[in-house]
Computed example of a mutant assay.
Amino acid sequence: MNEENRELDKLRQSLDLVDRRLQKMAADMERSHIADYVNLLNRPFSLLWRNLLAGTARGVGIAIGFTFFAATILYVLRILGALNLPIIGDYIADIVRIVQIQLEGKAY
């Protein structure tokens, strides 16, 4: 009888451990929104629309970022060109002139 109780206690402990792990897995799955993801996969047009919007937003962000970066580089090059450094100044002045001509829409 005593040994049966021990085995029952071991079995209860094992089942409690399994129950805790299952509850943790269920909570993790709920946190990961797996149901929303599966629902999204079942509606391909919604998935396409979201990806189209995300791609457009990335493209606009890249364009704005590159414009800001290029403007900053041109600003720094103009400052360096104004310093009249012997070789670098002429090279930078040529680059700035080429960019300004391209921005004005004239042929180089």
Rank of each mutant, 00 (worst) to 15 (best):
Y91I: 11
L17Q: 10
F68M: 15
A63P: 00
A57T: 09
I34M: 11
D36A: 08
A71L: 10
T72I: 06
V18Y: 05
L48F: 09
D94R: 07
N51L: 15
G81T: 12
W49P: 01
N39V: 06
Y108I: 14
I95W: 01
A27Q: 13
L17F: 04
R97P: 02
I88P: 02
V76D: 05
I73P: 01
T72L: 15
R50C: 06
T72K: 05
V99H: 03
P86I: 05
I95V: 11
Q23H: 06
A27M: 08
I34G: 04
E104H: 06
F45N: 13
V18E: 15
G65H: 08
A54C: 01
E3D: 12
E104S: 15
A82S: 15
Q13A: 12
S14R: 07
V76T: 08
L74E: 13
A71W: 00
I101T: 14
N2S: 11
L85A: 12
A54G: 04
L8M: 11
E4P: 00
V76I: 07
S46A: 04
G89R: 05
L52M: 09
I101N: 06
E4D: 07
N39F: 04
R6G: 04
R20Q: 10
A107R: 10
L8Q: 14
K106Q: 15
N39R: 12
S14Q: 11
F66H: 12
L85N: 09
D28W: 01
K106V: 11
A93M: 01
N84W: 03
I101K: 05
H33E: 15
M29G: 09
L52C: 08
R21F: 02
A57W: 00
H33I: 06
V60Y: 03
V99T: 14
F45P: 01
P44H: 04
A63H: 03
